[in-house]
Design a protein around this nucleic acid. Structure first.
Lengths: 116, 116
DNA sequence: AGGTTATATAACTTAATAGTTATATACAGG
DNA sequence: CCTGTATATAACTATTAAGTTATATAACCT
């Protein structure tokens, strides 16, 4: 998959609260599908579908343990989107906020001056 | 909007490459809709729809300049998802990688032993 | 007022998503 | 071999999303 498509798939997968909850659970360790499904007010096939979405997005991988298919969290794709967001980080970090504040001050001064 | 719904809307908005490209453009400064639309092989109403999605997600805001509605990038929501991802950061950072490597080594040793 | 430019909205089509129930597959264990 | 358990798939429905064209709204300019 091309990197842009990876971002599409990753973001789309993360847009669903059930899937984010699944990831949160998997961050604590491998779990089977049934175990994953239990806390949700949703059928098992629905959970299986969510898992397929997560897997195709590369956010989880699956093992084999008898008839169980334990799911494991895979951090690579989260790292990728963390890096994507990183290119915007300066917008909310200290150094930028200082510039922002400075610009705000300028604006306020202008208005004050114009009002005179 | 509740925080969970905000995450839904933000991730969904970012899942589209056109919208990510719009954000990238807006990170360089305010732009009007027509200017934004130009580089895309897409009608103006399509761009307006994307902007509405971005606006409802809180990723942009819009001003007024005569008949123009200049769009401005709003970093808050990106910051929020950066924080959400932050809770998983330890999975790909140095300290974790060392543990991961150690576990990989253990596995390899097991296999080697079993093969004997 | 009338024409032009910028943007938004309406109505529509197509395709994708999230869920359902029912069924199929695969393995485990007596 | 038979039964139960875990998971996946099929077939279906309802909702949402992304695009289109045509039209409406709003502000500028002469």
């Amino acid at each position: 998959m091309k990197p842009a498509n990876r971002l599409n798939a990753t973001f789309a997968a993360l847009a669903d609260p059930t899937r984010r909850a699944i990831l949160a659970r998997l961050a604590l360790g491998e779990v089977s599908v049934m175990e994953l499904a239990r806390p949700f007010a949703m059928s098992q096939p629905a959970i299986s579908k969510h898992l397929k979405v997560l897997e195709r997005a590369g956010l989880i991988s699956r093992g084999r343990d008898a008839q169980r298919r334990p799911c494991r969290f895979e951090p690579r794709r989260l790292k990728e989107i963390a890096e994507w967001i990183g290119t915007y980080r300066h917008f909310w970090e200290e150094s930028f906020n200082r510039l922002d504040q400075y610009l705000e001050e300028l604006k306020t001064k202008e208005k004050t001056r114009d009002a005179k």
